[in-house]
Amino acid sequence: MDLKTDPKLEDFRADVRAFFENEFPKDILAKTAKGASLTTEEVRKSEAALGSKGWLAAGWPAEHGGPGWSLEEQYVFDEELERAGVPTVTPMGVVYVGPIIYTFGTDEQKQRWLPGIREGREGWAQGYSEPEAGSDLASLQFSAVKEGDEYVLNGTKIWTSAAQHADWIFCLARTDSSGKKQEGISFIIAEMDRPGITVAPIITIDGKHALNQVHFDNVRVPADYLIGEEGKGWTYSQYLLGHERTSYARIGGKRKQLAHIRKIASSVPDGGNHRLIDDPAFARKLAEADLAVDGLEMTVLRVLSAVKDGGAPGKEASIVKILATETAQQITTLYLDTAGFNAQRGFADSVSPDWLEGGMATSHAAPGVSTYFGTRAQSIYGGTNEIQHNIIAKRVLGL
């Protein structure tokens, strides 16, 4: 893939960049730049801004209401979105369940749910993991029992991202326990305000509310909330997880973080004379992080080339998941280096109090450390990296 020589592609990049600079809500960008969490209303506003442009479901084919972009255009769009500091699009709708619905759903289901997803009017949550079924997802016990023209849902889902913002949730549910554990699992949808559904927040180590525990107590949903065939949910989940694991890459965002870290490390306070960027050990770690992002980008392009004709990313997506999450952790660790160095320098040097109180020394520290803590979980969710190594060994290398 050559992303630099096609003039039309550069024109496309200019159009996308102009939209983010001139039309995207400035208040959303400002709040995200501070590392603050968005309210449900702000999440809707952010995604509706993309939806009104027809750009929220960036990877969808035109036949299902997407922009019908080439793989190269999708990649450029993602780069510019990250570069501009636009909040990460909640993937549960446009990246996860949308492709499941337009691939396996009925025409009625497509008409019912796809417009709200691609326009950013409705938010979604993913009900996969359970208290006793995390990485071993096939061990799930969440049940869906068919009674007449309804399914009755019972059980608990955990680590449910963005459930507090969601209007809908899609769940893997056990509809049959008689065969292998991967069998008898179905893909079912429910409104979050259905009687019997309660949401309990989980506050993570970075101090943010991104995760939840969702309880279902005799929740009744229409039988046509089943997507695809009963008992085929495991197959659909593997299709979805391929998209999830490639969505971690976020190359543009990682390059923006590195530029920010380089700026912090190059700063010199009034009265000081030391720069972290001049420390050989730190400079080496920064260079290694740059190289890791370059390597990740090339790997992503190779994997995405396999889906040019609309296929799923496939088992090679596990490689991207490992590289992307480990690179994210490698980068955010540098925030700790800059925070620690500036704290030591503040005591050792005769620097201006203004520099210490609210200046470069401290303004980045809290959000940087919060980001560091947040990325610790990336190698766990979406299938732990240890599980991904097993997948690569068995399904890619054939060991």
Rank of each mutant, 00 (worst) to 15 (best):
W124T: 03
E150F: 14
I392Q: 01
G105T: 05
Y128M: 14
E72L: 09
A306Q: 13
I203G: 05
G66N: 04
N22F: 08
E229R: 12
A393H: 03
L71Y: 07
P25N: 00
G346W: 03
L334V: 05
D206E: 04
P91C: 07
G368D: 06
G314L: 06
Q344H: 13
A18V: 08
E23Y: 04
E63Y: 08
V221E: 00
L276R: 03
T175N: 02
G179N: 12
L286I: 06
V43S: 02
T32A: 11
A125P: 01
V293R: 01
W124S: 03
T384W: 14
K181C: 09
P61K: 11
S161M: 09
P131F: 04
E119S: 15
G65W: 02
I391T: 09
A144E: 04
D349E: 15
A328G: 11
E122Y: 14
T103F: 08
T103M: 05
N390W: 14
V268E: 11
D11N: 13
D224K: 07
A57Y: 12
S129L: 15
A210V: 15
A317K: 01
H389L: 15
L334W: 04
S186R: 05
G233F: 02
D107K: 04
G123A: 04
S139Q: 13
G127P: 00
A133P: 00
K31S: 08
K146E: 07
G51R: 03
Y225D: 09
V145W: 05
G346D: 05
L211Q: 09
H364F: 14
V214Q: 01
F341T: 00
T90R: 14
S352E: 11
K157P: 01
V351S: 10
Q164R: 14
G374K: 15
S177Q: 13
A265P: 03
G253F: 08
G374Q: 14
R112F: 08
Y102T: 12
I100A: 08
N390A: 15
P99Q: 00
A283Q: 00
I101F: 03
G184F: 04
N385W: 12
V145G: 07
Q182T: 15
V303I: 12
A33Q: 10
Y102E: 09
K34F: 03
R194Y: 10
E41H: 04
Y335T: 13
D193Y: 10
P195A: 07
T371Y: 11
A393Q: 05
E122N: 06
I202G: 08
E21V: 15
K110Q: 05
D15Q: 15
A133F: 03
M1A: 13
K321Y: 05
D6H: 08
D78S: 13
S318C: 12
D11I: 14
E150N: 15
I387L: 15
I391D: 08
S52I: 09
F19C: 07
L153W: 07
S363G: 09
L211K: 08
L172Y: 02
Q111K: 14
Q164E: 11
N22H: 11
S305Y: 00
V268Q: 11
K4A: 15
K285W: 02
V219Q: 01
R275V: 10
A324C: 01
Y225C: 12
D149H: 09
I380W: 08
I331G: 02
Q257C: 14
G358K: 06
T106V: 02
R112M: 09
A84C: 10
Q109F: 03
A48I: 14
